[in-house]
Structures are given as structure tokens and as C-alpha cells.
């Protein structure tokens, strides 16, 4: 099954003075369990693509189908729920909430999900942090742990709700090579062991070469 299917997608940013074509006629399918990397020079529209797949923004033209259903007519609250259940985000700069401790950061997706009891929430947070080797830092605040640890926590937060799609925008961009390799190993494990579909933006050839497929972008167009 196609987990992600984009057809004729176009994204234009309009401000009063200028019009930026960020994506132009993108057609793309990603199958269940695939690990795809997206490459291309700065400003070619990689993040824009991920935002559209992640329902954080709407395309100007074209359709985005996820998990076999169209997202075109979805209301804002419907998109929120879809993101919450099916999509996990990992960002370059981690984007942990500085005023929440590690456990509370990881708990966020479950808090926004209806019908998850406090006890179950605690159990799942503990479980996922144990899996990522961060359970000894549950009460720490993001400012009190290292960058690599922050990204582990962010990945824990991305998978605590058990989503089928993980979108990672330069997940190792702010990490040194050793920590970057650790994070990559984690993502591969999530892909292989859990069968999650992953779309990752990266500037690193070596990382990209280890994924199932590499998609290249140039100036808003998909070139391979």
C-alpha cells in the first residue's frame, strides 16, 4: 500500500511583494515500511515537502493522500488528530519544550489523544524512554541534557504515540558525527524492527546511501 502519495503538488508562498515557488508538480509515492531520504541544495523545498506530508501546511495545488485516504477535505481538528495518531516528527533543532521536563515532553502526543489514562500515559512514556536509554533522565529539563540526548528524547516523543509515519527533517544536522550515527542507528531500528515508514531530509550522502531510496530535489522539482 502507498502510505504517502503526492500528486501534482505545488506550493507557492505569497507575500505582498514576492511569490516563491517552493514546490512545483511533485509526484511521489512512498510504500509501507520504506525508508526514504530527500536530498537537495538549501532552499529547494525539502522542508516544505515534509510540512505538506505532515499536514502542517496545505498545498497550493495537487493532492496529498496518506494511509490510503485523501486529506483534501480535512478540517483543522481532523488534521490535528491525524498527525497525533499517525505521524511522528523529528526536527533538526529538537524542538523540545524548554519549560517541560523530559517525561512531560515525551508525554505530549498522548496528552492530546483522547482516552489515554494518566497511568497508561506514564507507563508508555517510561517504556519508550527505557527503549531509548533515557529513563534515567526523566526529570531533567532539556537544558540539562546533551544535544544527542535531546534528539533521543525527541525521537521518543515522535514514537510514543505509535505512529506509522516518521518525518525527520535533518535529524542529525545539529549533532556531531558520533551522535549522528547513533541517531541514524535508532531510525533504522524503528524502520526495521517496527516497520515504520520514514521520510528523512538529509545533506549527508553516506546517510542517504544507507536508506531504501533517495529522492533528489532542485529548485522545487523532483529530479530523480
Amino acid at each position: 500500500m502507498d502510505v504517502i502519495k503526492l500528486e501534482g503538488v505545488e506550493k507557492i508562498y505569497r507575500t505582498k511583494e514576492i511569490e516563491t515557488v517552493a514546490l512545483e508538480n511533485v509526484n511521489l509515492t512512498v510504500e509501507e515500511g520504506e525508508f526514504v531520504s530527500v536530498m537537495g541544495p538549501s532552499g529547494c523545498g525539502k522542508s516544505t515537502l515534509l510540512n505538506l506530508i505532515g499536514l502542517l501546511d496545505n498545498p497550493t495545488k495537487g493532492t496529498v493522500d496518506l494511509l490510503g485516504s485523501s486529506t483534501a477535505g480535512m478540517k483543522d481538528s481532523g488534521m490535528s488528530e491525524f498527525r497525533n495518531r499517525n505521524i511522528g516528527f523529528v526536527f533538526q533543532s529538537f524542538h523540545l519544550i524548554p519549560s517541560l521536563n523530559v517525561a512531560d515532553n515525551v508525554a505530549l502526543p498522548l496528552i492530546y489523544r483522547a482516552g489515554v489514562s494518566a497511568a497508561e500515559c506514564d507507563r508508555r512514556v517510561r517504556e519508550v524512554l527505557e527503549r531509548l536509554g533515557m529513563s534515567h533522565r526523566m526529570k531533567h529539563f532539556p537544558s540539562q541534557i546533551s544535544g544527542g540526548q535531546c534528539q533521543r528524547v525527541a525521537i521518543a516523543r515522535a514514537i510514543v504515540g505509535d505512529p506509522r509515519i516518521i518525518l525527520a527533517d535533518e535529524p542529525t544536522g545539529n549533532l556531531d558525527s558520533r551522535m549522528g550515527a547513533e541517531v541514524m542507528a535508532l531510525l533504522h531500528e524503528l524502520n526495521r524492527a517496527d516497520g515504520r515508514t520514514i521520510v528523512m531530509v538529509t545533506h549527508n550522502e553516506e546517510q542517504a546511501s544507507k536508506t531504501d531510496r533517495v529522492i533528489h530535489f532542485l529548485d522545487g522539482r523532483q529530479i530523480i
Binding site: 502542517l56 481538528s77 490535528s80 488528530e81 516528527f89 519544550i97 505530549l108
Partner: peptide, 16 residues
């Protein structure tokens, strides 16, 4: 703002 954006990405509705 970025906290708000992150919360929205993780599934917070406008009402949340």
C-alpha cells in the same frame, strides 16, 4: 510561538 507550533504538530487542536 515555536512551542505552539510543536504542540500543534504533536496533535494539539486550536482549542487545546
Amino acid at each position: 510561538v515555536s512551542e505552539i507550533g510543536v504542540r500543534r504538530a504533536l496533535g494539539a487542536t486550536r482549542r487545546d
